[in-house]
Each structure stands twice: as C-alpha cells, then as structure tokens.
C-alpha cells in the first residue's frame, strides 16, 4: 500500500512540474512537449486507477495526436512568407 501511494505522489509531482514548465518556458515547442508529458503521465495514472479504456484513449489522442496538431499549428503560424486571400 505504501509503495502504491508513493508511485501516485511521484507521478502527481511530475505532472505538476511539467504543467508549470509548460506555462513558464518561453519556447513554444518545449511548452507543447511538456503538455504532451502531462498527458502521458495522466495515461499511466488512469491505468493504475483501473481505467484501461481511458488510458488507451489518453495515450493515443492526448499524448500522440494532440501534440502533433499543436506542432502543425505552430508551424503554420511561423512562416514569414506573404499569404493573402
């Protein structure tokens, strides 16, 4: 029982640190990756909380697809070329 609680506390601390980093760092790519890390740890917590369905969804969508969508959006808002309608 003690070990289980310790794992949960460590995971929670890692998630909070990653979330603070995501909001604090200036570099947007690091920020996006930090949010992906929060999602990945959340997926492990779901698995430990006996919710395998939610863990699968969070790992595939929250940590995988969502990160790539953010990166694509960042790429699209970085180009210097002129683009008019």
């Amino acid at each position: 029982m003690e070990l289980q609680q310790g794992i949960f506390i460590l995971m929670g601390l890692a998630m909070i640190i990653a979330a603070v980093l995501a909001m604090h760092v200036k570099d947007l790519i690091s920020s996006i990756i930090a949010v992906g890390v929060v999602s990945l740890f959340a997926s492990i917590l779901y698995l430990l909380m006996q919710a395998p369905d939610v863990a699968m969804t969070e790992a595939a969508i929250g940590a995988g697809l969502s990160t790539l969508i953010f990166l694509y959006a960042l790429h699209k808002t970085k180009d210097v070329e002129e683009e008019n309608d």
Binding site: A19, A22, M23, L28, S31, I32, V35, V38, S39, A42, L45, Y46, M49, Q50, A51, V54, E58, G62, S66, F70, A73, L74, T77
Partner: peptide, 24 residues
C-alpha cells in the same frame, strides 16, 4: 494565443483526472 490553448489542454487533463478518481 497558442499558450492559452495549451493552458486549456492542461485544465482538461486535470478535470478528467478528477472525474476518473471519483469512480476509483
């Protein structure tokens, strides 16, 4: 604005964790 949306993504993860923990 991308940082604001990232903040919303963190809020979503937090709410989902709280909801799953209610059923544990």
């Amino acid at each position: 604005m991308i940082k604001i949306i990232l903040g919303l993504a963190i809020v979503e993860t937090g709410v989902q964790l709280v909801m799953v923990a209610f059923g544990f």
